[in-house]
Design a protein around this nucleic acid. Structure first.
Length: 689
RNA sequence: GCUCCCGUAGCUCAGAGGAUAGAGCGACCGCCUCCUAAGCGGUAGGUCAUUGGUUCGAGUCCAAUCGGGAGCACCA
């Protein structure tokens, strides 16, 4: 349970200031803090109990109040622990109730149930405040720099929906971190010298018998046919995978290619570089379609060639945190001892960082990279611009040659690093984290966070729709794992295109009056909403079983539903006179007793408002739990409540001026909240739907 | 063998030790002259895997068991 105290602690961590520029306390989190502080004081005065955490929750029904505190139970428990005396929580709640002075926005306090303390706000005061205040407060203190690494697709083929889950989670989390005041740097690691790139190069060189010139030529002719290079590589990679099964000779070629790539200065290395960076270009285009961008593309080649590993290796040796094995089966290896993991006969707890042949493992390189991200390595990359987005924003890539002239942003040096990586890599991520803590005890483990998530798999129906033969054994399984090597997977671009064309049909069906180009613009936004929400609504540790029918649905719990609700809210304001909102805000501020009367009778309107006011709290919850799904669920529920409000209240025809003003301000607050929740998920709101 | 994750409605999933366990889909019944159908309302559907324990209070925490998944490389 997230307590209010921990929320506060995290808030101060995020640099949020509770000092409002206005004198009154109005933000929901501020009110909760003020109430909690007073209760903490009372608990000490009246019962001699020091309360660490005071949980604040929403009552199950709005009739019970706006804020519920089960604090009397906690006090009763602590009294019993301290003195053995059994006190009735109801009596404690009564004592608290009669002693609480509250503040300007607390209208009434009641005790309920077995000992709840329920607080009712002065509804008109809060509405008047939020009528023209931002739903998310802006951070004022200096920002802490953090890094989010996500996407990190092997640059040897097109991205599939599993990669998109990673990217959408990472991108949304980065947006959330920005919303709580962090300075966020987004990195997309490019493993351009790894086995997978080597495999695709094996395909080009040994299966297709191509050289660099012919690959470039092929790339150009693909472009003319409207085909993309990464799709070609997708097919080629699976062809290589298949060929390996029967051709041992070819498998040996992989090692040769890998060595040539690592050594550099030869045609195979040039081919690898071309293939990898062309795939990266394709990936950036795909991700841009769903509003995902990067600041920096750190490449493995630079980690190798700029001596990152050597530097990290020296650091580890001088700090005495790694060990050289002189005997046993790991003789000749450098290992990182990891004591708390129990080793077994077959598996050692210690992690090998340098093989007996002197080469460094992936985890070793990862530790060096992580050190750089945290500003602990004492070395830096060189940089050049890789790509410039339409609005001028630049993506940088690491480079071995000296950096280009001009202003280069400061990369790395983050206080906290979030690595968005598949939970199947939990073990190596644990090794990286513990290694960092071993090398830099002052940094500890808290600075390296593995944002783990489960894979996206396919339903057997989906696999069959992709044209794959499913064995009887596989059909019995709840899902089928995607496999790049087998070419089994739903490619990101295919799904985006499918969503766009379905959305286009729906838009045209509804709006015969708008141009095709305009319809397409709307359809693209709908596709983004559908895809991103689909991948965000499941919590990170749930395996997403991809199904075409579900993915292509625009009804029910979908991003499209949320977008539709926001569009509906906007539609109201298109029909209203230009300054009606301004007038409504003035009316709401000037007629508080009447407004309060309306909000006290209309629980449905008030509970919608309370739900909207909770955005800030939800954003903090999502960050603290590192769970973007919390935001997604919130957004959907708010959209649902709003739809009911929309259904039940007609603003245009409302003749009572004060009531009309309340409805207008409510609709405005909700549309602002919906728009910013969607924006935090990277989902745009179309003009019409 | 060891470690981690999961088991909640027919299906897919939410559920922060607190009040009567929720949503979407599917099923059934209603609602388009509207800022209103990508929508809204209603009905049916639950031994929260099992058994113990902690607690004023357990779907939630602890232990054991059963069932499912993932990981435990001189792969990445």
């Amino acid at each position: 349970m997230l307590t209010f105290l921990s929320l506060l602690q995290s808030c101060s961590l995020f640099g949020i200031s509770y000092e409002s520029s206005r004198s009154e306390i109005m933000r929901i989190l501020e009110i909760e803090k003020a109430v909690s502080d007073e209760i903490r004081k009372l608990a000490e005065e009246k019962f001699g109990i020091r309360l660490e955490k005071i949980s604040c929750e929403a009552p199950p029904r709005i009739e019970l109040g706006d804020l519920a505190l089960p604090v009397a139970f906690e006090i009763a428990k602590q009294i019993k622990q301290k003195t053995g005396e059994k006190k009735n929580p109801r009596d404690i709640a009564e004592t608290l109730k009669s002693s609480l002075s509250g503040n300007s926005v607390v209208e009434r306090i009641e005790t309920a149930g077995a000992g709840y303390l329920n607080i009712f706000y002065n509804r008109a005061e809060i509405l008047a405040y939020f009528a023209d205040a931002p739903l998310l407060s802006e951070a004022t203190k200096p920002h802490q720099k953090v890094c989010v690494e996500h996407t990190s697709v092997n640059p040897n083929k097109a991205a599939h929906i599993g990669h998109v889950r990673n990217a959408v989670l990472g991108d949304t989390f980065a947006r959330l971190l920005k919303a709580v005041g962090k300075r966020v740097e987004v990195q997309n690691y490019i493993d351009n010298t790894g086995v997978q790139v080597a495999d695709t190069v094996v395909g080009f060189v040994y299966l297709e018998k191509m050289n660099l010139q012919s690959i470039i030529h092929l790339d150009e002719s693909l472009a003319k046919e409207g085909k993309s290079f990464d799709y070609y590589c997708w097919d080629l990679y699976s062809k290589v995978g298949k060929a390996y099964e029967s051709d041992e000779n070819l498998k040996e070629k992989r090692q040769i290619v890998l060595h040539l790539i690592e050594r550099g200065g030869n045609e195979v290395a040039e081919i690898a570089d071309y293939v990898a960076m062309r795939n990266v270009q394709c990936l950036l285009e795909t991700m841009e379609k769903i509003n995902i961008r990067y600041d920096l593309l750190p490449r493995e080649s630079e980690i190798l060639h700029l001596g990152f590993w050597q530097k990290a290796f020296e650091e580890m040796k001088s700090r005495g945190v790694i060990r050289y094995e002189t005997e046993g089966k790991r003789a000749g290896c450098w290992v990182m001892p990891l004591d708390s993991h129990e080793g077994t006969e077959e598996h050692d707890a210690d992690k090998i960082l340098v093989r007996s042949n002197g080469t460094v493992t992936y985890t070793g390189k990862d530790i060096a990279y992580q050190m750089w991200k945290l500003g602990l390595l004492g070395l830096d990359f060189n940089y050049r611009v890789f790509h410039t987005y339409a609005d001028g924003k630049k993506v940088w890539v690491t480079s071995t040659s000296s950096s280009e002239n001009g202003v280069i942003p400061e990369f790395g040096k983050s206080e906290i690093v979030y690595n968005v990586i598949d939970s199947r890599q939990s073990y190596p991520q644990e090794v990286v984290k513990r290694s960092i803590a071993a090398i830099f005890p002052e940094k500890g483990e808290q600075s390296s966070i593995h944002l783990a998530y489960e894979m996206v798999a396919l339903s057997s129906a989906a696999a069959e729709e992709l044209g794959f033969q499913i064995s009887e054994e596989d059909r019995k399984k709840p899902f089928i794992e995607m496999s790049g090597r087998k070419g089994l997977g739903v490619k990101a671009n295919d799904l985006i295109n499918l969503l766009e064309s379905k959305a286009l049909v729906e838009v045209e069906k509804r709006h015969a009056d708008i141009s095709k180009a305009e319809c397409l613009k709307i359809a693209r936004k709908i596709a983004v909403g559908a895809l991103r929400y689909l991948l965000l609504k499941y919590t990170r540790n749930t395996i997403v079983v991809f199904d075409f029918k579900e993915a292509l649905s625009f009804e029910g719990e979908t991003g499209v539903f949320c977008q539709y609700s926001a569009v509906r809210a906007n539609a109201i304001f298109k029909k209203l006179a230009k300054d009606e909102l301004k007038t409504a805000i003035e009316i709401v501020k000037a007629n508080r007793p009447e407004v309060n009367e309306i909000l006290k009778t209309e629980n449905e309107i008030w509970s919608l408002l309370m739900q909207a006011f909770r955005l800030e709290e939800i954003v903090h919850n999502s960050v603290n739990n590192r769970e973007p799904a919390i935001l997604a669920k919130y957004c959907f529920n708010l959209a649902k409540t709003f739809n009911l409000f929309y259904h039940n209240h007609r603003i245009i025809t409302e003749s009572n001026q004060i009531r009309r003003a309340v409805l207008i301000v409510t609709a405005d607050i909700v549309r602002r909240t919906l728009t910013s929740s969607l924006d935090l998920m990277g989902i745009p709101v179309p003009e019409r739907m």
